[in-house]
Deep mutational scan, measured.
Amino acid sequence: MKTQEELTEIVRDHFSDMGEAATLYVQVYESSLESLVGGVIFEDGRHYTFVYENEDLVYE
């Protein structure tokens, strides 16, 4: 099982292909040891929320 830090790095790496991230945040109260819930805000103003669970990243 991966730590939240490892899950955060996986998510950060995925979003790095989409541009320069200004902020990546984790909603600790919705996350667990198995999943990471949060969002990313890019330098150009785009904002996505995400759920990373079971090696699957879903974002909108």
Rank of each mutant, 00 (worst) to 15 (best):
Q27K: 11
I41A: 02
E9F: 08
E20K: 13
G38F: 12
Y52A: 01
S16M: 10
G39H: 12
L33K: 13
E6T: 06
Q4H: 06
F50A: 00
V26G: 01
E9I: 11
M1R: 12
T8M: 15
D13I: 14
V40N: 00
R12Q: 05
L36H: 01
T23P: 04
E9K: 14
D44H: 02
R46C: 09
Q27V: 15
L33H: 08
V51Q: 03
Y25S: 03
M18S: 04
V26C: 11
L7T: 04
D44Y: 09
D44G: 04
S31N: 06
T8V: 14
E30Y: 13
F15K: 01
R12N: 04
D17Y: 14
L36R: 00
G45C: 10
Y29N: 02
D44Q: 03
I10S: 03
E43F: 09
E30F: 13
L33I: 10
V37S: 08
E34L: 09
A21V: 15
F50N: 00
N54R: 07
E34D: 07
L33Y: 09
L36A: 03
F50M: 00
I41S: 02
V37L: 06
I41K: 04
A21P: 13
S16Y: 08
E5P: 05
E6Y: 08
A21N: 12
T49Y: 10
V28W: 14
T8C: 15
G19Y: 07
S16P: 05
Y59W: 13
Y52F: 08
Y52K: 00
V37Q: 07
S31V: 10
L7C: 10
E6W: 10
Q27L: 15
Q27G: 05
Y25T: 05
M1C: 15
M18F: 10
G19C: 13
V28N: 08
D17N: 14
Q4W: 12
S31P: 13
S32W: 09
L36I: 11
Y52Q: 00
Y52W: 09
H14G: 05
R12P: 02
H47R: 06
V51E: 01
E20G: 12
F50H: 00
L7Y: 04
Y25N: 02
F15M: 04
D56K: 15
D44I: 12
F42R: 00
V37C: 11
R12C: 15
L24E: 01
L7W: 06
R46Y: 02
F50G: 00
E5Q: 10
E9V: 09
D13Q: 15
G38V: 11
A21K: 10
F42K: 00
F50P: 00
V11G: 02
T8G: 04
L57Q: 02
I41M: 06
G38Q: 03
R46G: 02
E20A: 12
E43R: 12
S32Q: 09
M1K: 13
R46F: 06
M1Y: 11
T8S: 07
L36N: 01
G38C: 13
V40G: 00
E43H: 10
T23E: 09
Y29I: 05
E9Y: 06
G19V: 06
G39R: 11
K2L: 10
L7I: 09
Q4M: 13
Y52H: 01
Y29T: 03
Y25F: 05
Q27P: 01
G19H: 05
E6L: 07
E30N: 14
E30K: 09
Y59T: 04
L33C: 12
M18P: 03
V37A: 07
V37W: 10
F50L: 02
I41G: 01
N54V: 06
E20S: 12
L36G: 01
E30T: 10
V11A: 04
L24S: 01
K2V: 06
V40F: 04
